[in-house]
C-alpha cells in the first residue's frame, strides 16, 4: 500500500507545515500591520529632512497609561500640542520609580487613527529602549518627533498613547528559562 504511505506522509508534512505557518503568522502580522497601519503599530525612526514643510497644523494628543499595577509616576509635560507638519518637535516625559526596589519598565507607543501611524516619525524615543530606575529615582526623557507632510488630508488630529509596562518579572523569568 505505498499509495497510502505516500498520502499519509504528504498529509503529515502539511500538518507540520501548518503548525509552523501558525508561528509564521507572527512576523507576517507585523509586516501586515506596517503596511496597513493596523493597531497603530509605530515603526522605528525613519526620517529624512523634509524640503516641503508645508504649513498644515495638526493637533496631537498625548496620553500616558500605566498598565495594571505599574506603580511608577509616568506623565508627559503637555497633554496636547499643535504642531506643523515636517517640523521637529520635542516633548518631555517624566518617569519616577516610586517603589523601594529597582525596576525595569518598557513604554509601548500606539498611534490612533492607525493609518496615521506611518506618518508619525519619532527621531528619539524612550520607547526604543527599556528604562531601569533605582528606588525613588526620577528621570526626564525627551520625545522628538516629526509629522510627515504626506499625512493624508482627512486626518487633522493624531493621538499618541504610551502605556508603561513593568517588565522586571518577565526579564527575570526569561533569564531563568534561558
Amino acid at each position: 500500500m505505498s499509495s497510502i504511505r505516500k498520502s499519509v506522509s504528504k498529509l503529515f508534512l502539511a500538518t507540520v507545515g501548518m503548525f509552523l505557518f501558525g508561528f509564521a503568522l507572527v512576523p507576517l502580522y507585523d509586516v501586515f500591520c506596517e503596511i496597513t497601519g493596523l493597531n497603530g503599530k509605530v515603526t522605528g525612526p525613519t526620517f529624512s529632512e523634509y524640503e516641503n514643510v508645508g504649513n498644515r497644523e495638526i493637533k496631537i494628543i498625548f496620553t500616558t497609561t500605566n498598565n495594571d499595577d505599574m506603580p511608577w509616576v509616568f506623565d508627559s509635560l503637555k497633554s496636547q500640542m499643535r504642531v506643523k507638519t515636517g517640523e521637529q518637535n520635542l516633548l518631555n516625559y517624566v518617569f519616577t520609580n516610586t517603589t523601594n526596589k529597582p525596576m525595569i519598565a518598557q513604554a509601548i507607543p500606539s498611534v490612533s487613527p492607525g493609518k496615521g501611524a506611518q506618518y508619525f516619525h519619532k527621531t528619539e524615543c524612550f520607547c526604543f529602549e527599556q528604562q531601569f530606575l533605582e528606588p525613588g529615582e526620577s528621570i526626564t526623557i525627551p520625545l522628538k518627533f516629526v509629522i510627515d507632510p504626506d499625512l493624508p488630508k482627512d486626518i487633522s488630529s493624531l493621538a499618541l498613547g504610551y502605556t508603561l509596562f513593568d517588565i522586571t518579572k518577565d526579564l527575570v523569568q526569561k533569564q531563568a528559562s534561558n
Binding site: 509552523l20 501558525g22 503568522l25 518577565d170 523569568q173 526569561k174
Partner: peptide
C-alpha cells in the same frame, strides 16, 4: 488545527517561558 495548536503553544510559552507573543509590554 495545527494553527490552533500553534496559538495555544504561544500562550503556553507566554505563560511559562517569558516570551511575548501576546504581551504588549514585551
Amino acid at each position: 488545527m495545527p494553527v490552533l495548536a500553534g496559538a495555544v503553544t504561544m500562550m503556553l510559552m507566554d505563560i511559562h517561558f517569558g516570551t511575548s507573543f501576546f504581551k504588549a509590554g514585551g
